[in-house]
Each structure stands twice: as C-alpha cells, then as structure tokens.
Amino acid sequence: MSVLAKSDPDDLIRAWDDLEDKPKWRWLRKPETGLVMVRGRAGGTGAPFNLGEITVTRCAVVTEGGENGADQSYTGQGYLAGRNRRHAELAALFDALLQNSERRPALEDAVIKPLAARLEARRHQASAKSAATKVDFFTLVRGED
C-alpha cells in the first residue's frame, strides 16, 4: 500500500491500462478527501505535538467473483496523501487484486516491484545530488593564538 500511495499516479494509470484480465468491481466507499493531522515530536524524540494537516483521499472497492463463481471477491483500500481520486481508486483496485493469492505473485513482479524500483531510483538520485554537496570546512587558527 505504501508503494501504491507514494508512486506517481501516471505510473499507476499505465500499469492499470497494461493489466490484462481486469476484474469487475464496485465501490464499497467512493473516493472522499479529508484531513489527517501530522504529528511531530518536540526535539525529534520528545512528546508528540500537532504540526499541521495533510490532505488525504480514501476509498474502498470490492472486486466481484468470476462468472464461474470460483473466484472470491476481495476488498481493496486506497488511502493516500493528496486529492487525486483516480490515484486512490487505482491504489484500492491493486490492493484488492493483491489480496488474491493466485494473482499476487504476478502482480508483485509486473507492478509493485517496478514501482518500488522507480521510487528507489528517485531516492537514489536525490541522495547522490545531495552527496555532491557534502562539505568539509577548515577551522583556521586565529592570529592571536
């Protein structure tokens, strides 16, 4: 869910479009935008305090069983920062599909791992750019010493 929430919505749209065998599904809860109060800690380690809110969009879907009745139905949740309803919808759909142990391994390989790799690459790049700004100041000896 974390990977689905943090990924670029366009990547999710592409992954959904590429998906063969899309399930039938219906809303359990339509996308709704609200707020979550983000907390910090005094001094980083101390008592928690309320820093400020963040917009969050949530929704829930349920996939319907196949025509032969063999498939189960699965519930998927989308909970993510921001107000992108389509993003929340796709996150919930993938979450539902990932509940299905038969589909899970293929989806992990085809969708989640590439998305996670993209996130990792993004982090890697930011880290490398910052690493290039690492500084080692010299402390000068003062004249009077």
Binding site: E32, G34, L35, V36, M37, R39, R41, E53, I54, R123
Partner: peptide
C-alpha cells in the same frame, strides 16, 4: 474537509 484522524509522530531521524 472532514478530519480522518491523527498520524503517528513522524521520525525525523529517518529523514531522506
């Protein structure tokens, strides 16, 4: 907007 709740306290030691 409705308030969904409160986050866990963020851990700035694990900041990217």
């Amino acid at each position: 907007l409705p308030r969904f709740g409160y986050s866990a306290a963020v851990d700035t030691a694990k900041m990217g």
